[in-house]
Structures are given as C-alpha cells and as structure tokens.
Design a protein around this nucleic acid. Structure first.
Length: 882
RNA sequence: GGGGAAGUAGAUCAGUUGGUUAGAUCGCCAUCUUGACAUGGUGGAGGCCAAGGGUUCGAGUCCCUUCUUCCCCA
C-alpha cells in the first residue's frame, strides 16, 4: 500500500466497516478448525451451551469473550485448538415458550397431542434456534463451527440413552415414590437445586389439637395450616421434658376428626414455636423423612394441579391459598386458633417460572448420587481438576459431600424421553438403548414407553464427551478429551459443572476438564442484576452496533476480577472504544512511516529509547502471558492497555518521530522503523485475543504481513530486557515531567521553546548525559546546557530537582521570588518528610538485617537521592534569600 | 444456623508469593488543534486503603474482633 493510500486511512477507526468481512474471512479460511490429525499439544473447550431459545445477553457476551481470549491465545501459541459450540434444548424454558405461542391460538399442547406438539417445537427451534449462535459470531467467537452440536441431536441423544441404560443396569437409576418439588405452573417435578428459596413474609399459626383421652389439648405451630388436613402425627423432641409424658398419646386432628399419634423425633426443634409440630408426610420433605422413620401414612391432600384433593374432604377443589384461608377461618370459629404471629420463612420457588413450589409425593426417576460422588470429590481434592478462583472448590465440595439423589424425570414432552418401556402383559420394566419390539420376558408386543422426559441437565452433564462423538470411539474423542478449560458462571456449578465431573469420571474414566474458570455476573450500572422484569438489561448486540465488538469485549474483560461480579457502564465501553481508536491511530502513524520498510532483524545499534521500549515490551509480553496462564484475563488486558497507551504511544512514538522523519539520517530512520515495527506488531499480537477485529484489520496493512494475525505465533521474550536502559530512561522521563510541570504551572505556552540548564556531575550515568536530546524534544527545550554541580546557579531562574539532577529554567520574566520560595519550600517539606521515613527504616537494625538486601539497597539509594534533593533545594532557597 | 464475597480518590474498580512513594478509567480544574489520534496531548487537585486489635524490621496485602452490603447453602 502506498503512502498516499495510507494517509487516507480514516483517522477514526470504524468497526462496522471491517468486522463482518473479517469474520467471514476467518471462517472461510478455516482458521477456527482444530485438525484432529494435526500434531502438537491440544487445547479444547466446550461452550456452555446457551438455551436454544435464547437471545444473547451480557452474561453470554462475557462468558464467550473469556473463552475466545483463551482459545485465540492458545491457538497462537501453536496448540491444536478446538472450541466446540452448540446449544441446549432447555426443556422447560423451550416448552413454555412454544406453549405460550400456542395459547395465542387458543390451543394447549394437549389439543395438539404429543407428536404434533413436538413437531411444532422442532419447527420453532429451526426458526429461532440458530439465532444465538449467529450472535456469537458478531462477538468474534472463534468457535469450531464444523463441530457444532445440539443436546437433542442424534449423537447426543444416543449418549443420553447409553448413559441412562448403563446407570439403570448398574442400579444407579431407580424409580420410586418420593417427595419431590412440584411446580404447579410448569406441571413437572423439579430437582432440589431447581428450587430457589426466597424469604417470604408469612404467618405462624398456633393451633389447638385436643387430646383423645381427657379434655386437655396441645398446641402446634405451623406456617402452612392447610396441610394439617393431611397430618398423620404430631411430633416432639424426645429430649423435651415438657412433652415427654405425652409421647404415645393420641390427639384429634381438628376439622378432620381423625385420631393421630404423638411421636418423638430428633428432628423437632424444641425452640421453634411451641416445640410441637404437626407432621404431614405427603407435603413436607422433613415430615416425609419423619414419616418414613415412624411408618406413618401419607395422605395427599394437595394435587399436582395445586388444588386440594378429595382427601381434603370439604376443602376439596380449593386452591391452596384459598384453602388456607378457609381452614384458618374454620379453626378460629371452632376456637382452636390460639394466635397468629408474623413470620419470615423461606419458601421454595421454581427457578424457571418463579411460582411457588409444592412438595408432593409422586413417582419419579432418580439417580443415586453417593456412589458417583466419591470419585468426583477425589478429582478435585487431589487437584486433577482445579477451580479458578480456588475458593469455589469449597462450594463444590460442600455440595458434593452432602449430595442427595437427583430427580431426573420431568413431566414434559420436549426433551430426551426416558428409555423405559412397560410391558402391558406381564408388567416387566425394560430399559433399552434401542426401542424394543417386544417384551424380553413374555414376548408381548404391547409395550408402553414411560411418558416422561429427562432433566435437561442430564444431557448437558454429558456435553464434554457427547459432543466428541461418544459412545462411538471417534478420533476426536481420543484427541480432544479431556477438555482443557471450562469457563462458566458460579450459578451453574451444581447444575452443570458438578454433574459433568460425575459423568465424565463414570463414563470416560477421566475428568472432563482440567480447569474450571468461574466468573461473576454482569450487573447493571447501579449494581442490580440485569433482568427482564426490571427492564434494565443491556443488549450486547446494540453495544456492538454502536461501539464495535472489540470495545465490548475489552470492556467486559478489563472489568473482570476473578470470580467477581462486574458492572456494565456505558462510559467504560467508550473508554474501550477510545483505546481501539488509539491503537488504530498508533498503527496509522507507524504505517505512514513504514512505506519503504520490510520486516527483518532488529538493528545492531539501538538508541536508549529503543532499548527502553524493547525492554518494556518484553516485560509486558511476559506479564500478559503470565496473567493468561493464571487465567486472570482482566489483569492481562489492563497491563496491555497501560503499556500500549502510556509507554508505546505517549513516550516511544513521540521519541522516535525525529528519527522516522529522517532528521537523523537514513540509518537512524531504518533503525527506528525496525524497532517500531517490532514493538507494534508484537503488541498487536498480544492484543489480538482481546480485540480480534481491530488487530486483524491493522495486520492486513502491515508491510510483509502474513495471511492472518490469528495464526501468528504468540510473542515470547527474546532477552531484550535492559535494566540499565530502563533506569536511564526513567531518569530522563522524570526530568521531562519536572520541566513540563513547571511550564504548566507557569503557563508557558506549549509552542514556546525555553532553555534549561542541568546541573549534574560526571558521575551521572553516561546514558543519561548522552540522551538529553530527549528532554529537548519532549519538554519543549531549545537550548540545553549541562554544567557541573560545582558551578554557580543562575540567579533568575526556576528550579526543580529530578532524579538527582538539578534543573534550572531561566524564565527571567516569569520568576516571582516570593512564589518561588513558597513552591520550593513546599517541595522541601515533602522531601524532608520522605527522608525522615527513609531514615527511620535505615536506622532500624532489624530492617537492615532481616529485609532482603535488594530492598535495603533500594532504600539506601532512595535515601541518598532524597538527601541530594534536599541539599539542592536548601541551597536554592538560600540563594533566593540573599 | 453454616460458608463465601465485598467495603481503597467524587463515581466505578485494580492492586496474588507482605517491601509503595497506593494505581487506572470516568468525572473535575487548567492548558493546548505541536506533521497518528480532541474517541487526543500536557499538567493538576483529590485517598489516616470500613473500624479496632494482633503478627512482622515492614501490612491495603496475613491473623482475630466489630460494623455495613451482597451471594450461596440448610
């Protein structure tokens, strides 16, 4: 590209012009695909499959940006990389959506029938299901699209059957009548973790239960009086002296006129209410357990529709809350309601529809978890799987160690149908991988399949190997399993992460991933959760439209501190957009000066500025790599930002301008080009995982550029670190800042050149002395003189001390002696304070003997520099006084 | 009740083997269109790092207690 064309590159980076084309270019180039037969180390990630019905939200944007950064980084490092995308069929969520559509037509799923309904869901999925996957492309996600999967596709479905039947045959899946959480809205059972407990303002009702013998009565306290209709006992704590004598007696259950026993059970908390509780085994999980221990009847008074059953006698047909009102009223009339207190208690709600959950006894399928949990605990305890940040290990282990059986059947239609058939002739139960034709026991063909489907999370638990072709022994499975990292939010550690670990170990005999990277939530600017009901959600695609994908990615990444939530603030996106523009312009500047350049070796002779920027660059290479290795992507991004903006743009580019403009000869120009190119190209590579579009767009303009920056090799330090160069440059920068500071304070116009006299001794680093031209260049100094410290100071001048160098600016007309005295006095005070602190440290025997020598040495140097500074300032003040 | 996170400049947040002279972004003040960038440059103001104790030569960083906010589990 010629110089003129480059000059016409717009001075403002426009992401819209490039993003779509670049993504298409990458995809067409096949750069995202991990070749299963390629040699080398492998880096595999499976995407947390978004709900197929979903729209991309900020949580997805964050989650997928983080994955993409890791994937792009490892790809550049030469790993054979495959990031496997896909979607989740999301049983309840999807079914609810399609049912809602049907309702608009005045239909229910039952009107259509199972088969017809499923057809509708598939149609719906085909129509909208791809949406979220395409939205990921807008973000720049470098997924291995050839390997895209869906939890309900043929392969994943086979895996589900395989696992179910295998667990069934091992006796780890069983069917039984147990109390489970029932959502009356979704009309299905839920697992324990699908229930969210929220505190609700309720009442605590104290109710009299008359004794069968005599005319005494007892008092029980309950938050759910309507369940008393199904009471089959009253319980007290066996150690409770107050009631010990009553155990074994009977009371009359009011309203139902049924005698029930008083039992003793450790579960009862003597402190709660009256210390006597009613026991309803069919409608409370704790009472259910108690009922099992004491052989109590279960009387189901609430039905799956949320209405009272025939067992509830006169209350049959009432909704639960209505029934509660009536029961309380009737108890009150009968003089059995002693008192009602306000009471805050946790009530279970469905995690999908947020309606109240009813604990009900029903026939469901369960996975026996204890035997599976052992290995899953071991894998984390012994460090084969690591959580990042580590604290989530505790969350995981705590849950795993107290794990309960998993209710996996759902009374839905959309999902993996339970592969169990019942023989209508002989009653045999058949679990089979292939649909059976006839009963293996009696040969009857009259088989009926279990109507229920499996919990969606059952199939997602298999995701790390089902996506790779399991149960087939595919080359992909052999090459890419176990996956490398899993990136996900803390909210699904139990739902998903834990279960993948269980299943991976059970069926692959190996962990599903080595690292679990946990990130937080993206919150609204005010710190609240983004939610549909609050209407405070921000659509990531609108942000991409406005600012570009890179700006959104960078905002999310720099906002991340491991495991913590982050707030989405529009100003931060602006900052990221500005950064992108800064990089664009730095590149534009470089390109304008690289038109006659082709990449090659670094020059043999380096200037101080070159040595400094190369050294700083290598440090940032090491730092970014180190932070990526420890999965702190936020720190990596921030380090890079600071380097590019402050050191590369603010300092190096300014320093290198005269050489690039040819003011110091052709050789100097060539050298500057080589160093600038080296650092710029390297910085772009470092930045690429974070801002893929921008860096690719620039890459395409660089002289001698390869096909794509995506496949460039990740920078590594090449031994260019240079402590001496950094120190000299730091001193010069300090001098420049000191002069700029004075200029600013004295309102010297930037265009006005001034002169400066530096008092420094021959002992100063020659590197500094030889490079004072930088001071002239960047501090607006025209004539610069060096004089020995022994020389006389000019009288009419403004003074400062930086890096042990005394700076005098003879700005005669601007010198106000009184003001100068104040200024110097203030600086002197500050220096003295610091000196005192330093002196304190050095006077401390313990510090000298116990602190590392390097720290002591540093403190000594600081001390003597401060001393010098004070001397100089004092001398200057004395001069003024005269 | 158990576990965890957070409390640092006006706002939002960084700060990981304890060595700091506590940083960034936005905002604020001043100033400047100097041949990459005003989505910019330069300079500046602004913090007893929640409170109290302890360990240490040295604590924003480790330990304990208290207060406040949030999350998970029972």
């Amino acid at each position: 590209m010629g110089k003129e064309a480059l000059r016409q590159l717009p001075s403002v980076y426009d992401p819209h012009e490039v993003e779509g084309n670049i993504y298409a270019f990458w995809e067409k180039g096949g750069f995202f695909h991990g070749d299963v037969s390629a040699p080398g180390e492998v880096f595999t990630v499976v995407i947390p499959p978004p709900n197929v019905t979903g729209e991309l939200h900020m949580g997805h944007a964050l989650n997928n940006t983080l994955q993409d950064i890791l994937v792009r980084w490892r790809r550049m490092q030469g790993y054979v990389t495959s990031w496997i995308p896909g979607t989740d069929h999301a049983g309840i969520a999807t079914q609810i959506k399609v049912e809602a559509d049907l309702r608009k037509e005045g239909l229910t799923r039952h009107d259509l029938g199972r088969e017809e309904f499923l057809k509708r869901v598939w149609e719906w999925k085909e129509k909208y299901g791809g949406r979220i996957i395409h939205q990921l492309r807008r973000l720049g996600a470098s997924c291995d699209w050839e390997r895209e999967r869906f939890t309900l596709d043929e392969g994943c479905s086979r895996a589900v059957r395989e696992v179910f039947v295998d667990l069934y045959n091992k006796g780890l899946i069983y069917q039984g009548d147990y109390i489970t959480n029932w959502c009356c809205e979704c009309n299905t059972a839920l697992s324990d973790i699908e229930v969210e407990h929220n505190d609700v303002e309720g009442k605590l009702y104290h109710i009299k239960y008359p004794m069968v013998e005599g005319d005494g009565w007892i008092v029980v306290a309950t938050t759910r009086p309507e369940t008393m209709l199904g009471d089959t006992a009253v319980a007290v704590n066996p150690d409770d002296e107050r009631y010990r004598h009553l155990v074994g007696e009977q009371v009359i259950l009011p309203l139902m006129d049924r005698p029930i026993p008083i039992i003793a059970d450790d579960f009862v908390d003597p402190e709660f209410g009256t210390g006597m509780v009613k026991v309803t085994p069919a409608h409370d999980p704790n009472d259910f357990d108690m009922g099992q221990r004491h052989g109590l009847d279960q009387i189901k008074v609430i039905g799956p529709d949320g209405k009272m059953t025939e067992e509830a006698g006169p209350y049959a047909g009432l909704a639960v809350l209505e029934c509660r009102r009536r029961v309380v009223e009737d108890l009150d009339k009968a003089g059995l309601l002693l008192k009602v207190e306000d009471h805050l208690h946790a009530v279970g709600h469905c995690y999908r529809c947020h309606s109240m959950v009813e604990p009900l006894v029903s026939r469901q399928w369960f996975v026996k978890m204890k035997p599976l949990a052992g290995p899953a605990i071991a894998a984390v305890v012994d460090g084969r799987i690591r959580f990042v940040p580590e604290r989530f290990t505790k969350t995981y282990l705590n849950w795993m160690e107290n794990i309960r059986d998993w209710c996996i059947s759902r009374q839905l239609w959309w999902g993996h149908r339970i592969p169990v058939w019942y023989c209508q002739s002989c009653g045999e139960t058949i679990a089979a991988k292939e649909d059976p034709e006839e009963c293996p026991k009696c040969g009857s063909r009259d088989l009926v399949q279990d109507p229920d489907v499996l919990d969606t999370w059952f199939s997602s638990a298999l995701w790390p190997f089902s996506t790779l072709g399991w149960p087939e022994e595919t080359p992909e499975l052999a090459r890419f399993y176990p996956t490398s990292v899993l990136v996900t939010g803390f909210d699904i550690i139990f739902f998903w992460v834990a279960r993948m670990i269980l299943m991976g170990l059970e069926f692959m005999g190996d962990i599903p991933f080595h690292h679990v990277i946990i990130h937080g939530l993206v919150r609204a600017a005010d710190g609240r959760k983004m939610s549909k009901s609050l209407g405070n959600g921000v659509d990531p695609l609108e942000v991409v439209d406005e600012y570009g994908a890179d700006a959104l990615r960078y905002t999310l990444t720099t906002g991340v501190a491991p495991g913590n939530d982050l707030r989405y603030q529009p100003e931060k996106v602006e900052a990221s957009r500005n950064f992108a523009n800064k990089v664009w312009n730095a590149a534009r500047f470089a390109l304008m000066n690289l038109d006659d350049f082709l990449p090659g070796e670094l020059p043999a002779e380096l200037t101080l500025a070159d040595r400094w920027i190369l050294s700083r660059y290598e440090r940032v290479v090491a730092e970014v790599t180190r932070q990526l290795e420890r999965f702190d992507l936020g720190e990596a991004a921030r380090a890079l930002y600071d380097f590019i903006w402050s050191e590369l743009c603010d300092w190096y580019i300014e320093l290198v301008k005269p050489r690039l403009y040819g003011k110091e000869g052709e050789k100097a120009r060539k050298g500057a080009q080589a160093v600038l190119y080296h650092v710029l190209a390297g910085s772009l590579k470092l930045l690429h995982p974070f801002m893929p579009f921008l860096t690719e767009a620039i890459w395409q303009y660089l002289p001698g550029a390869s096909q794509t920056i995506m496949l460039e090799s990740w920078p590594v330090p090449e031994g260019l670190e240079d402590a001496e160069g950094e120190a000299a440059m730091a001193a010069i920068m300090e001098v420049i800042r000191a002069i700029r500071n004075i200029r600013g304070e004295k309102n010297v116009p930037p265009g006005k050149k001034i002169s400066a006299i530096l008092f420094m001794d021959a002992g100063e680093s020659p590197l500094i002395r030889e490079n004072l031209a930088y001071v002239q260049l960047l501090a607006g100094v025209e004539s610069l003189e060096q004089r020995p410290k022994a020389a006389a100071r000019p009288s009419k001048a403004i003074a400062a001390v930086a890096a042990g160098i005394e700076i005098y600016l003879p700005l005669a007309d601007l010198v106000d002696l009184e003001e100068e005295k104040r200024r110097l006095g203030k600086e002197l005070d500050q220096a003295r304070e610091e000196l005192a602190r330093s002196q304190g440290k050095l006077a401390n025997e313990n510090f000298i003997s116990k602190a590392p020598p390097a720290v002591v040495e540093k403190e000594r140097a600081r001390y003597s520099e401060l001393q010098q500074k004070i001397e100089a300032l004092t001398a200057r003040l004395a001069e003024i006084e005269e």
